[in-house]
Design a protein around this nucleic acid. Structure first.
Lengths: 143, 143
DNA sequence: TCAAATTAAATTGTGTACAATATAATTTCA
DNA sequence: TGAAATTATATTGTACACAATTTAATTTGA
């Protein structure tokens, strides 16, 4: 790398651009479900395990309440989840799926395969990308 | 990958999270220059070659006028660049650096090295990440 | 035990992203 | 040549991101 200040020599720019590109490829599939990409991520966590506190969602997604609170309110307004303060600790808000939120899972199940197809990446490329990104994310993640 | 709908098995999530993580690491250095990360990217392009039309910036950064116009107005308000319609074609806005915008280059020159340090990634990891990301970005980028 | 510290969410404010639309200038072509 | 199509940018509206602050509940420790 000659001049580190040239855009083409930066590491971060292609990462930032590729992240947006991949999210773009999700869009047509998520539009069918009337979801944004971050909303889809929240639902994926809840499909896996329920309920989750706002804090737990934030830790898994590396997002804070400033991002999550309005996002969760929008999902609540769509009837996909409920927000309920815990009786034992009124500071904590627990997020649970509604029937509609649960039901959306089967429709979402097809997305990963469709996405692979749409992006035209090979399995090998995907695996290579995931390995290095996971490794660096583990190194870098905010404790 | 067992169940593609689990967050940990997604390719896109770690990419999205790592992109935000790396930008977080830039923040303290960019704060000193009173710049955001996308503003820094615009300046980098202009340091390399000047002037650039809004369209050219958008092609290089994969951003549209809805993002760039207000961003460029903020950089103009800070006195770092000028926005001027071309006489030959009044539709086109040309972006040029001011003295202050040019002068910021030397202060920005130190950032890439500082960032490498701050993130604690090895050169080999960076190179590996950059290779696969560049390859996939080239495949995927919006024509 | 009760004031201070801590914690969890929510709120506020700024700055992207991006779809959709609008506006104005330039090109095209019947 | 002049109406229709195209192009470049701007605007509008929605939804993140995230820093900083606020609020309310809980925990801690002198």
């Amino acid at each position: 790398m000659e001049n580190p200040l040239l855009l083409k020599n930066q590491i971060c720019f292609p990462l930032y651009a590729l992240s947006r590109e991949v999210i773009q490829h999700y869009r047509p599939f998520l539009d069918e479900l009337d979801l944004t990409y971050p909303q889809y991520l929240v639902l994926m966590i809840l499909w896996e395990s329920q309920p989750q506190t706002v804090n737990q969602l934030g830790e898994k997604l590396l997002l804070d309440s400033g991002t999550l609170t309005p996002l969760l309110k929008r999902l609540e307004a769509k009837g996909l989840l409920t927000r309920k303060r815990k009786a034992e600790d009124e500071r904590v808000v627990e997020i649970s799926l509604t029937e509609a939120g649960q039901a959306m899972r089967s429709r979402a199940e097809e997305i990963p395969a469709k996405l692979m197809d749409a992006m035209g990446f090979t399995v090998e490329e995907m695996v290579e990308l995931k390995q290095i990104v996971d490794k660096l994310l583990a190194k870098s993640s905010r404790s």
